[in-house]
């Protein structure tokens, strides 16, 4: 009853303010749906300006690994499970690279309270992966990340083929199996 009342009141408001925009969006979605139907795996990274931990500007379009798989993982200094995930990757990173050529980008979403803390932390931990800084969450928003840790796996063509949110002990083994498949050119759409 309550919910109905709410819906009823808002319908008029809705119509006057948003109907046009919604209809336009509806058509955009239809267009998009055709795309999804035809090109299920097609995907590309958005173009967003972030920084390297050396302070240089870096565009996410330049994330590249010469035809090998890429992992992009969003993390922050305040996120314990994220740091565990990165530690777990770091421990096996050398082996992974040798076997699959994978490259890991660890994107810190720490805001300016702690962006300058990231470099000493990462070096203090002796992490080997590429670390990027996204202090205002621009890349995070463009990738539709709701909560962290959130990890994307890209195949050699730069298509996103797998995503996972949250980290539990042992997730790295699961991720590695997928990286191996991707490196071998297998499809993982059913995992």
């Amino acid at each position: 009853m309550y919910l109905r009342a709410v819906l009823k009141i808002d319908w008029n408001y809705f119509k006057t303010r948003y109907m046009k925009k919604l209809i336009i969006l509806f058509f955009a979605v239809i267009l998009g749906a055709f795309v999804v139907a035809q090109e299920t795996d097609y995907n590309q990274l958005p173009s967003v300006n972030v920084r390297t931990i050396e302070g240089e500007s870096f565009n996410t379009k330049d994330i590249y690994n010469d035809g090998n798989p890429i992992l992009i993982s969003f993390w922050a200094l305040w996120c314990k499970p994220c740091k565990k995930e990165m530690d777990a990757y770091n421990e096996v990173y050398e082996d992974w690279q040798e076997e699959t050529g994978v490259k890991i980008y660890a994107v810190s979403i720490d805001d300016s309270r702690s962006t300058t803390k990231v470099a000493p932390f990462v070096n203090g931990k002796a992490w080997e992966m590429e670390v990027l800084l996204d202090p205002n969450g621009d890349f995070k928003r463009a990738m539709n990340v709701n909560m962290i840790p959130h990890t994307f796996l890209l195949d050699g063509k730069g298509n996103i083929v797998y995503q996972h949110t949250s980290y539990y002990e042992g997730l790295e083994d699961e991720i590695y199996e997928l990286v191996e498949k991707v490196a071998a050119g297998e499809s993982i759409s059913n995992n």
Partner: peptide
């Protein structure tokens, strides 16, 4: 027009379209 056309331009347009969300 977009859906029925097989023209290269439209096909290209379609290929580049993506919808994402959360």
């Amino acid at each position: 027009a977009v859906v029925s056309s097989q023209a290269q331009g439209f096909q290209n347009f379609l290929d580049k379209s993506e919808v994402h969300g959360s």
